[in-house]
Design a binder for these strands. Structure first.
Length: 763
DNA sequence: GGTTTGAAACTTTTT
DNA sequence: GTTTCAAACC
């Protein structure tokens, strides 16, 4: 499409954002104002109109999802895939893979996720003989993480707090932590950014290389950048000074993770002559929802004033309901979703339930399951944090980077090989005395006198690992996973267990295998290190399939950037949201403003309808907590809300048989009055029952089975694959969770792939 | 060296 | 209510 045609669909402000290409630009984009559109069109404009090479453009996002979405949209607009679209973390990994040796690391480094960091810290605390009662690994890790986000390395930290007693211990821990990371040839999450900045500062020629290449740099979600990320962006864009950042200070919700809201508030100070463009027209929500959002956020002081508006005047009022217990709250939400689905107002994919803390999901999950509503919980325990998945990944890490001590220690006795803590302690001591890497010490274990006969067991382990290492040279990642599962006996052990839990673990391992297959088939140059990298850098939110017919449950944080026709915000109570800590920290400080921004994010996710719910009583950590309605609800003008004046609950007539355990007592003041207003007229027991059957889908647990769509090709058909080109289908086997399709490709040879990943198209 | 058991902590949000 | 961790026991 010619660029001129493209630009016609934009409003004036958006257009300005697209064509203002030179110099520093800040686009203050309110929720739903089409910022992604501006960024992608801007890129298209640069390429098509100004003749900029795609190679000279970079766009940085926070999540993989945002990155791949932007990549796709740019590819659709311009037909090129040459623009560097990446998350902060992946971009840094890519840079470090090339140049880590310049700052004293091996380019073949490992990435530690927060679990790995935690394990490492635990060891450190133990080895340094610190009182485990007094010092918790989390405290140290938080402190170190904030330091890294502020670009304070271990040496700076030690200098800076030389005279501070309590920080002195932290400083010693920090030094030890860094030296162990280095010994394991590993970077933790924060290192990826900090070390890249360090690399740029110590190796000007490397920085220069990037500065000359990157004529245009764009950053999405700028309000969530921390100091290290700010510096990274600054350095990268320093060459041509064409930096465009897009963000919304009202949606800055990651302060706890080091995000510095002043990056966006002071943009014009950091980059003199910056052009500021405000996008305030909203294309997502109704005016009612926007008014509510505007009113809530206007209580914040430290912000750049914006007022969202839309041409979509009016809209349904926001529903608010307070219940006696969280149990009834969850019940109401499940019923309401069901009735709206039966009534045809919304389908399940339109619904999202948002909450402040992950712990709230349990009750909601229970109710949805009871009502046979398909759902998916996003966040909480990451797929890759599961025990069995981590175990197998640890094997892969050891194969990839033998220096990774944490990974070696994790698997050396999994499955049981009779190598216990005592032996490991001896090895560890030996390794630190001689200064050799942990794995090397293992291989030389027979020279350690005190080890004795245990060294035979260790020999067997290293022999196994070395075999894997050898095989890995020629094997693809999924093949390697299979080999590990078989030769270690890991899978056999689980199979022998014959419990539900073991079965679930086996399924998770199948899922891991599928992911490896998908990685192999979808990546240009699949490598083991690349797979591990992908795995380390994905968030749960990246896995949402938008077409699938289920309700999603997630925290308000995870919901940023998403939109849903029908949104529920559960647990709108003082003490929960805003959180107890925030309230006691003193009224309306910066913390409270951040909570309010979180509320603003939640409200602006809704396109058509928003429902807020609260419970008077809620079980928190075993005991009952009583709370009043959230102050944020009260900040919404009454005229926009339906239901503030009374206190409804599930009437006994509308509750299904599953409500028998309901602890609800009928003695509340407003009992029975106006109760059914929001259920819709069709909400009777018979429609309920019918809907049970109609929607009797197995509620998906984490890692939903891949939907087995009907394949539109058969054995013998000609198909095409994104990467392998054209070929003939040789075989279609009915695998456990998906069809396994074998295709003889004309150029790439015979490949076996999972149908849902391969995205084969019939020709 | 491995398994069982009871106590204690945990809950804010996560790339 | 759940998970994690260390001590005591096999």
């Amino acid at each position: 499409m010619p660029v001129e045609k493209l630009l016609e669909g934009l409003n004036d402000r958006q257009l300005e954002g697209v064509v203002t290409t030179d110099g520093p630009v800040l686009i203050l984009a309110g929720a739903g104002s089409g910022k992604t559109r501006v960024l992608t069109y801007r890129t298209a404009y640069l390429i098509e109109k100004l003749g900029v090479e795609p190679y000279n453009i970079m766009a940085i996002t926070f999540t993989n999802k945002a990155a791949s979405e932007m990549k796709d949209r740019i590819a659709n607009l311009t037909g090129t895939e040459g623009v560097w679209v990446s998350t902060f973390h992946s971009a840094c990994v890519r840079i470090l893979r090339r140049f880590a040796d310049k700052i004293g690391y091996d380019n073949h480094f490992t990435i530690y996720d927060s679990d790995d960091s935690k394990t490492l810290m635990k060891h450190i605390i133990k080895d340094m003989n610190l009182d485990t009662k007094k010092f918790k690994e989390k405290t140290f890790l938080n402190e170190i993480s904030s330091a890294k986000n502020e670009l304070i390395n271990e040496v700076d930290y030690a200098d800076r707090f030389a005279s501070d007693y309590t920080k002195k211990i932290t400083s010693r821990v920090y030094l030890e932590y860094e030296s162990r990371l280095r010994a394991s040839n590993a970077f933790d999450f924060d290192d990826l950014i900090m070390k890249t900045v360090e690399l740029f500062k110590t190796s000007p020629e490397v920085l220069n290389n990037y500065q000359e290449r990157l004529h245009y740099v764009m950053v999405d979600e700028y309000q969530d950048t921390n100091t290290a990320q700010f510096e990274l962006i600054r350095l990268l864009s320093c060459g041509r000074k064409n930096l465009c950042v897009v963000g919304d200070d009202d949606q800055s919700i990651y302060k706890f993770r080091g995000a510095n809201i002043y990056n966006i508030l002071n943009f014009e100070k950091h980059f003199p002559n910056a052009k500021v463009i405000k996008l305030e027209q909203n294309y997502r929500s109704t005016q009612v929802i926007l008014d509510a959002a505007n009113d809530v956020i206007s209580n914040n002081k430290g912000r750049k004033k914006k007022t969202l508006w839309t041409e979509d005047q009016g809209g349904e009022k926001i529903s608010f309901r307070q219940f006696d217990s969280a149990y009834e709250e969850a019940q109401f939400i499940a019923f309401d979703i069901k009735s709206k689905s039966v009534g045809g107002a919304f389908s399940y994919r339109d619904d999202a339930i948002l909450y402040r803390t992950n712990a709230q999901s349990r009750m909601l999950e229970e109710k949805l399951m009871q009502e046979n509503i398909p759902y998916k919980i996003i966040g909480g325990l990451n797929f890759y944090s599961r025990l069995e998945v981590k175990d197998i990944l640890a094997y892969l890490k050891v194969i990839d980077n033998g220096a990774d001590e944490i990974a070696v220690r994790r698997i050396i006795n999994v499955p049981k090989r009779g190598i216990g803590a005592t032996t490991l302690g001896k090895i560890s001591a030996f390794a630190s005395e001689t200064g050799m890497p942990f794995y090397e010490a293992l291989e030389k274990s027979d020279t350690i006198p005190s080890i004795g006969k245990a060294s035979n067991k260790i020999k067997e382990f290293t022999k196994l690992i070395n075999l894997f290492k050898m095989e890995s040279e020629s094997m693809s990642v999924p093949e390697l996973i299979r080999l590990v599962l078989e030769l270690t006996g890991y899978e056999a052990e689980l199979k022998a267990e014959k419990t539900d839990e073991a079965q679930a673990r086996i399924e998770n391992l199948d899922e891991l295998y599928s992911k490896a297959v998908s990685y192999r088939d979808m990546t240009e140059e699949p490598t083991l290190a690349g797979f591990l990298e992908d795995v380390a850098l994905v968030a749960d939110i990246d896995n949402r399939e938008e077409e699938s017919e289920y309700v999603v449950l997630m925290t308000l944080h995870s919901a940023k950037g998403l939109e849903f026709p029908n949104v529920y915000m559960a647990g709108m109570e003082d003490g929960l949201f805003p959180g107890y800590m925030t309230i006691t920290a003193g009224d309306d400080g910066e913390d409270m403003e951040e909570e309010r921004r979180l509320c603003y994010v939640g409200i602006t996710r809704a396109k058509k309808h928003l429902t807020m719910t609260a419970a008077k009583m809620r079980m928190v950590r075993g005991d009952m907590q009583y709370s009043s309605v959230s102050r944020f609800v009260k900040e919404i003008p009454e005229r926009l809300v339906d239901g503030t004046t009374y206190d409804p609950s599930i009437s006994s007539s509308s509750s299904s048989s599953s409500a028998s355990r309901n602890s609800y007592s009928d003695d509340n003041v407003f009992g029975g009055r106006s109760v059914n207003t929001n259920y819709g007229s069709g909400f009777t027991e018979s429609t309920m029952r019918k809907s049970h059957i109609a929607t009797a889908t197995k509620a998906p647990v984490y890692g939903t089975k891949i939907q087995r769509g009907n394949l539109d090709y058969n054995q013998g058909d000609r198909v095409s694959h994104r990467k392998f080109g054209e070929g003939t289908v040789v075989d279609i086997a009915d695998g456990k969770r998906d069809y396994e399709v074998t295709v003889e490709f004309d150029t790439a040879g015979k490949k076996k792939m999972l149908a849902s990943f391969a995205k084969l198209e019939k020709i």
